[in-house]
């Protein structure tokens, strides 16, 4: 045994203590509350997406003539294809949901404040990438709704001043959806965006390690208790538990509400009822409320504001002399978000 250890030690000259030092970030106590462990959930789901996505890529074909058929093959013919596809679909849904929840937690606990402003910006980038990945992924199915969703989205981007037309051309590889469009979506979805997400996540986590997790204290904690516990193995076990719960949840969703096939994309007929994926309900409703340019420009401003919120927050505090000004803004924004989403969900047009 010791000879084996020595052999390994010689070839991989990392000492156990060093490894422990590296991984054993002391974890603040508040992370024992699930609400604060949401940051790891999207990371875990991202791994699920990478694994199931790679599996799906074995069968997916990104040419418009074969795309829908290949998805149908996965869903109906390939063994466990429906399960893998449903996992991918549900993990995407949960990932976007958990990213939003994670962001809300960070926002309401004001964890983005000095010195963590940059990490908030990186988080915003991750959010954008996640949404884009969801959008491009849905387009790959090449069914009626996803086809027309992509068409509409491209034309929305066209309305963006100055860069809009450029963006649309880059997205569609032409003025309209054409045979070179789908491969673009595929490469964005399966290569460009995931790689970006991995890089951003690395930076995101590095920042967390550098700054340490924002420490929070609660009134029910006794002051004698130590305010940290070990990442390894304690917090790792928590994450493992969360991971398994997620897997079981995904399995349940995949079996109860499996991903189905819509009618194949038909560029000549727009379906009567057209809706994007649920996470775009907000912007879809927003679009219907205002004229296209107003809606697009206002959306742009809102996103920009979200990116620079740590600084806006400081400005707000200075102006209102209220530490919690952002919280009130957040509450209003949350209600707006939920309201618009529900509105879009319950009406057909």
């Amino acid at each position: 045994m010791s000879r084996l250890n020595a052999w390994i030690q010689e070839r991989i000259p990392v000492h156990g203590d060093q490894l422990r030092e590296l991984t054993n970030e002391p974890v603040p106590n508040h992370l024992k509350r699930w609400w604060f462990a949401l940051g790891g959930t999207p990371a875990y789901l991202f791994v699920v997406q990478v694994v199931t996505g790679i599996l799906l890529a074995f069968y997916y074909q990104s040419s418009p003539s074969a795309a829908w058929e290949s998805v149908r093959y996965i869903t109906e013919d390939a063994r466990y294809g429906w399960y893998i596809r449903s996992l991918h679909k549900w993990a995407a849904t949960l990932m976007i949901a958990s990213v939003i929840l994670h962001q809300m937690r960070v926002y309401f606990t004001a964890a983005y404040r000095r010195p963590r402003e940059l990490n908030w910006v990186i988080g915003m980038c991750l959010l954008m990438c996640t949404l884009l990945t969801g959008f491009t992924g849905y387009s790959l199915v090449f069914e009626q709704l996803s086809y027309w969703g992509a068409t509409v989205a491209a034309n929305i981007s066209d309305a963006v001043p100055v860069i809009g037309s450029f963006g649309k051309q880059m997205l569609l590889a032409g003025d309209t959806y054409n045979e070179r469009t789908l491969p673009r979506f595929y490469i964005l979805h399966a290569a460009v965006l995931p790689t970006t997400i991995i890089l951003l996540m690395a930076v995101h986590i590095t920042f967390i390690r550098l700054h340490g997790v924002t420490e929070l204290h609660f009134e029910d904690e006794s002051p004698d208790e130590p305010d940290h516990f070990n990442f390894f193995p304690d917090h790792l076990l928590t994450e493992l538990t969360i991971g398994l719960v997620l897997m079981i949840l995904l399995s349940a969703l995949a079996t109860v509400l499996p991903a189905t096939m819509g009618p194949r994309a038909n560029p000549l007929v727009t379906p009567e009822v057209i809706k994007p994926e649920w996470f775009f309900y907000v912007s879809f409703r927003w679009l219907k409320l205002f004229s296209l340019s107003v809606a697009v420009i206002s959306t742009g401003f809102i996103i920009a504001a979200m990116f620079v919120w740590p600084w806006i927050d400081r400005l707000l505090i200075r102006l209102t002399r209220n530490e919690d000004a952002s919280v009130y803004v957040g509450i209003v924004a949350t209600f707006l978000l939920i309201g618009l989403t529900v509105w879009e969900a319950v009406v057909t047009h």
Partner: peptide
């Protein structure tokens, strides 16, 4: 992998 003993929240020192 190991960790023996009660590793509870009280243990602060890694």
């Amino acid at each position: 992998q190991e960790p023996s003993g009660d590793i509870r929240g009280e243990r602060t020192d890694a």
